[in-house]
Computed example of a mutant assay.
Amino acid sequence: MELLMQGVTLMVIGMATVFAFLVLMIQAMNGSAAFFRKFAHLFPEAPAAAPKKATAAVDPSAEIAVALAAIRAKRG
C-alpha cells in the first residue's frame, strides 16, 4: 500500500509541475504579446516577398519519357 501512495504522490507532484509550467508559459506569451502590441511601431514589417514566376507547364508524356529513359539507363 505504501508503494501505491508513493506512486500517487509522484504523479500529483509531476502533474502540478507540468500545470505550473504551462501557466507560466501562458503568462509569458501574454506578456510578450502585450509588449509587442505596445511597441509595434518600433518593429517595422518585413517587405513582402516577390511573387515567383510561373514555370512553364510540362507535358505529362515528357515526364513519363524521362522516367522510362532513367529506368533504361539504370538497368543497362
Rank of each mutant, 00 (worst) to 15 (best):
I64Y: 07
M29C: 06
A57G: 02
V8L: 14
A34C: 03
T55P: 03
F39S: 02
M5H: 14
R75C: 01
M11Q: 08
L42Q: 14
T17C: 07
D59N: 12
Q6R: 15
H41R: 06
G31R: 11
R72I: 02
L22Y: 06
L68E: 15
G31V: 03
A70M: 05
A54H: 04
M1V: 06
E45D: 13
M15C: 09
A54G: 05
L22E: 11
D59L: 02
A73T: 09
P60G: 03
R72V: 04
P51V: 05
A56V: 08
K52C: 00
P47K: 06
E63L: 09
A28V: 01
F21I: 15
A40D: 13
D59T: 04
T55K: 15
D59V: 02
A28H: 07
A48M: 05
G76M: 03
V58R: 10
G31D: 10
K52W: 02
L10P: 00
L10M: 05
M29W: 11
I71G: 02
L24Y: 15
R72L: 03
A70G: 04
M5V: 12
K74C: 01
I26F: 11
Q6E: 14
K74E: 11
K53P: 05
K53M: 00
V12C: 06
G14C: 03
K52I: 01
K74P: 00
A54D: 07
A46L: 08
K74F: 09
A57Y: 03
V8W: 10
F35W: 06
F21V: 14
E45T: 06
M11T: 15
M5Q: 15
A40R: 11
A46V: 07
M15G: 15
I64F: 07
P44S: 05
N30Q: 11
M15V: 14
A49K: 14
V23W: 11
A16H: 04
E2F: 02
P47R: 07
K53H: 04
A62E: 13
K52A: 11
F19Y: 11
I26V: 15
K38G: 01
A34T: 07
L68F: 03
P60C: 03
Q27K: 15
A69K: 13
R75V: 04
A34D: 14
V23E: 12
Q27W: 09
A73D: 15
M25W: 02
R37T: 08
G14F: 00
G14A: 04
G14P: 01
V66F: 05
P47I: 03
R37I: 01
L42N: 10
A69T: 11
T55L: 11
G7E: 15
I26A: 14
V58E: 08
V23K: 13
T17R: 11
M5P: 00
P60N: 05
M29V: 10
G7V: 01
A67K: 13
I13L: 08
E45I: 02
I13A: 12
M5I: 09
E2H: 05
F35L: 03
M15W: 09
L10H: 09
F19E: 04
I26H: 12
A70V: 04
M1W: 03
T9N: 14
R75G: 01
P51E: 08
E2K: 08
I64D: 12
M29L: 10
A50H: 03
I13F: 06
Q27P: 00
I26C: 08
G76T: 05
M5N: 12
F43N: 12
P51F: 04
P47G: 04
A20D: 10
M29R: 10
L3F: 10
M29P: 02
G14L: 00
I71A: 08
V8A: 13
